[in-house]
Design a protein around this nucleic acid. Structure first.
Lengths: 214, 214
DNA sequence: TAGATTGTTAATCGATTAACAATC
DNA sequence: TAGATTGTTAATCGATTAACAATC
């Protein structure tokens, strides 16, 4: 791809900040404000105002207005549309241990139209439901994924079973995996994996701590 | 700091990869290998071999040997030392809901000498212990943090109580916080915060999925 | 020796920050 | 109008990748 059209792809960093913008903007809207400045967003989220304007320029249908700022509701609609959250997005959780259940019931998705439709596990004693969300045996993964046309899954099984669970997910039609197991997964082309490594996060946290110790 | 000495700080990206190297190296060691090449590490972890060599150059006390690679045990010791995991590191979990409990019992720390010493919660029914790990009322945070000289905490309370729980942690002497609540925290200088935002991770995952759809 | 593998310098890519002109 | 705020171009910073020389 030669990028002649010069559309200048949106950056990953920008995408990662959009959910936080969305949460803040909804809060602002619920307080009844119609406009918000990039400086106000930046202040609330601990980022830079120029960065906010650049991020918003990527996704917004309407420019901000000098002296007034951005129209809150337009921005909310634009970000939701950009993230694809104007329609509901179905995801499954594979592995219904403590972490899997925590994610199955995570309240933090409330603003994002993400539906965690079900969890799956191999252990018979975990089959059933928690707070109305079903937990199925892993054998039913295929069926449920196809029925709900699920494209993304969250993997929370123990390390030993991570690769085989991953293979099962891909076989069922899942194209993107958020992996909480501390293993690197082998996946075919066309499948995306993101790693959520708690040990890595703590290592970075400790690193930043030492910096400020000086 | 003028950086005249030209010590060239270690990059955050490097730090974030060290735990994965450590896990892999321990696996290699347990298989009885004495040497490992940067290409083998890169292949297993899905990163580039040049990157691996650069990362290792930052932390290792001994250069790799052409034709043989790196001495596995030396590398393990060097990374552990660099991350400060040659001594045990105590952390606490504030918020003992599902996510808090999942972290309290997380097996993924096994190679890292990280001790999750206790969790804390305001709900009386959560006080007690899970699998031998104590859950205390939040009022005891100060006492326990001081007793174990804890410098880092993991925050897993609901959004509404995140800021006040954060304040309590800082008051108790905690200097670094890994925050799982979807809120931006206000902290004084000298305290580090890292955000773990599940909605942001999913947004990035969905983004990478669309890319490969083309 | 030849070849595999390392380590380093330079080039590139990506993201943030600085500077500043535009405008309601 | 003057001032607050936006949007954009250029400069900087940070991380990855390419190129290649060194060496066991």
């Amino acid at each position: 791809m030669d990028n002649i059209g010069q559309e200048s792809e949106i950056s990953k960093a920008t995408v990662s900040r959009l959910p936080a913008y969305l949460r803040f903007l909804k809060e602002v809207a619920s307080r009844g404000s119609w406009y918000v400045s990039s400086a106000a967003i930046a202040e609330a989220l601990g980022v830079s105002a120029v960065g906010v304007r650049k991020d918003l320029a990527f996704v917004s249908s309407q420019a901000g207005k000098p002296k007034r700022g951005f129209e809150v509701n337009t921005l909310i609609a634009d970000i939701e549309k950009f993230l694809g959250y104007d329609e509901r997005t179905a995801v499954v959780v594979v592995g219904a241990g403590r972490l899997g259940k925590a994610i199955l019931l995570y309240e933090g998705f409330e603003h994002f139209k993400i539906d965690v439709v079900a969890a799956f596990d191999v252990k018979p004693e975990r089959i059933g439901a928690v707070s109305g969300k079903p937990i199925y045996p892993l054998e039913r993964l295929d069926e449920i994924v196809r029925r709900h046309d699920v494209k993304a899954g969250i993997l929370t099984v123990p390390r030993e079973s991570a690769q085989s669970a991953c293979d099962a997910m891909i076989k069922a039609g899942i194209r993107a995996i958020l992996n909480f197991s501390p293993v690197s997964l082998k996946v075919p082309d066309g499948v995306s994996v993101r790693y959520e490594d708690l040990a890595a996060s703590l290592a970075m946290l400790f690193g930043s701590m030492q910096d400020s110790d000086k």
